[in-house]
């Protein structure tokens, strides 16, 4: 389980870690939109530089970004193959028998690869530097204005934080049940299809039972402490924007507008 890098929080002591989650979420959204402008290689170079600077500031290692990117490689290879089959424009790069690969096929794949890399770098800047709980607080605050059109901001944030909170528990529970069923002779690796289905069933049924049990316990515990959805609540942790947060937002806006102008000019 320790190998998943994408979306994981890395506790470090950096400026980016200390920034307000709302500022980080907004900045990320703005720059992500900029990634989708067709701004050409110069625009991507600018975005790459900006994202690299953020990663440098957040003290994350290059290896971590690489590990987050790695699962995407298979997809990119697949994409390259499809592009090679479909795209027939530009000069021919090389031919195998009657089959030729064109330059545009490779360029287009590279284009998507760069965009993907940028997106992963930018989102990682947010997810790796923001505690899940802070993130939900930020989301809740950002959704507040939409409460006027009946978006249940607080409930959405509560749902997300509860879901996040239970992920490690459910992983533990799954491993526990797996061991218990293996002790009863279940073989999760080998066996015929019918045995495999039975094996998975012996895992899923107890997992669901205990998940529902936990949900019910949690609901009771929350109600026992007077939790009422929709009622106004005070907060232990109050988010506050500081100077650096405004600077981040300004930088994100300038970058996005700049890229937009560049895309329009091209």
């Amino acid at each position: 389980m320790g190998s998943i890098a994408l979306g994981r929080y890395i506790p470090l002591d950096s400026v980016v870690h200390k920034m307000d989650p709302r500022a980080k979420i907004m900045a990320m959204l703005i720059v992500l939109i900029a990634v989708f402008f067709p701004s050409g290689w110069i625009g991507y170079a600018v975005l790459f530089a900006a994202a690299s600077l953020m990663i440098l500031l957040s003290k994350l290692s290059v290896g971590f970004i690489w590990r987050a990117m790695r699962p995407m490689l298979i997809m990119l290879v697949f994409l390259l193959v499809i592009n090679a089959l479909v795209v027939h424009t530009g000069p021919v790069l090389f031919s195998i028998g009657s089959f030729s690969v064109y330059l545009d096929a490779v360029l287009q794949t590279l284009y998507i690869a760069v965009r993907l890399l940028l997106m992963i770098m930018i989102t990682t800047c947010l997810t790796a530097t923001t505690k899940p709980l802070d993130m939900t607080l930020g989301i809740e605050d950002l959704l507040k204005p939409f409460e006027k059109i009946h978006v249940p901001a607080h409930e959405i944030a509560m749902l997300i934080s509860i879901a996040l909170r239970f992920i490690p528990d459910l992983i533990d529970e799954t491993q526990r049940i797996m061991k218990a069923q293996e002790s009863r002779g279940v073989d999760l690796q080998e066996g015929k299809l019918k045995e495999k289905i039975q094996a998975i069933l012996s895992l899923i049924v107890p997992l669901f039972v205990s998940a529902f049990q936990r949900a019910e316990d949690l609901a009771n515990a929350m109600e026992a402490r007077g939790y009422m959805p929709g009622e106004p609540r005070t907060r232990y942790k109050v988010l506050k924007m500081a100077g650096r947060d405004y600077i981040l937002l300004a930088c994100a806006l300038i970058t996005a507008v700049g890229i937009g102008v560049l895309a329009w000019a091209v």
């Binding site: 529970e173 526990r176 049940i177 218990a180 069923q181 009863r184 069933l201 012996s202 049924v205 107890p206 039972v209 205990s210």
Partner: peptide, 8 residues
């Protein structure tokens, strides 16, 4: 421990 959770 708590083997009742393995019933299915």
């Amino acid at each position: 421990q708590f083997p009742e959770y393995q019933l299915f």
